[in-house]
Computed example of a mutant assay.
Amino acid sequence: MHELSIVRALLRQVGRVAGAHGGGPVRRVTVRLGPLSGVEPALLAQAFPKACAGTAAAGAELVIESVPVRVQCRACGHVDEAAPNRLRCPACGCAETVLVGGDELLLVSVDLEGRLNV
């Protein structure tokens, strides 16, 4: 399960953020996850507590915010949501689109004990 290595990398980033804000126990980690990120949300959630054991994030809550796939049409310029397996422009049907969202895995916020959203 590559989600475990992803969570470990995420926790390194969480540790840097927490350290920059005085450290302390991590209570919540919020991430933004797109369907084309290559990460399975359920497996990420399952790996999170295992990777957190023995760290400042032990017992922390993982919040996963899902984001839709978004494309921009090269022909008409329209930007809209699209199905992960159908990246055509919803407005004109053109197949020449540019992915502008839905492939991300972003650390949105880290809530530390006594502080919110750092």
Rank of each mutant, 00 (worst) to 15 (best):
I64N: 05
P68E: 03
C73W: 01
V69Y: 04
D103N: 13
C92L: 15
G59E: 13
Q72W: 11
L62R: 07
E61K: 15
V79P: 04
R88S: 13
L87K: 04
I64E: 10
A57K: 07
P84E: 00
G77A: 14
S66Y: 15
E104Q: 11
A60I: 06
E65P: 06
S66M: 15
G102C: 01
A57C: 14
D103Q: 12
V100C: 08
Q72R: 15
T97F: 07
P90D: 01
E96I: 01
G93I: 08
P68M: 05
S66L: 15
C89V: 07
C76R: 14
I64S: 07
A83H: 06
S66W: 15
R86W: 09
G77T: 14
L87Y: 06
P84C: 02
V63R: 09
V67L: 11
A91G: 07
A60F: 04
V63N: 06
L62P: 07
G101E: 01
N85W: 00
G77E: 13
S66H: 15
P68I: 02
E96T: 08
E81I: 00
E104K: 02
A82F: 00
I64P: 02
G77V: 14
D103R: 09
R88T: 14
A57Q: 10
E96H: 09
T97A: 04
V79C: 12
A56M: 13
C89E: 02
R74Y: 09
P68C: 01
E61L: 15
A56W: 12
D80Y: 02
D80N: 05
C73Y: 03
A75L: 11
G77Y: 13
L87Q: 08
A58M: 10
C73I: 04
P90Y: 02
L99E: 02
T97K: 05
I64Q: 08
E96P: 03
A58C: 12
A58D: 15
G93C: 09
D103M: 07
P84Y: 04
C76S: 12
G101P: 02
R70K: 13
L99I: 01
S66E: 15
A57E: 09
P68V: 05
C73S: 02
A91K: 04
V79W: 05
E104T: 06
C76E: 13
I64T: 06
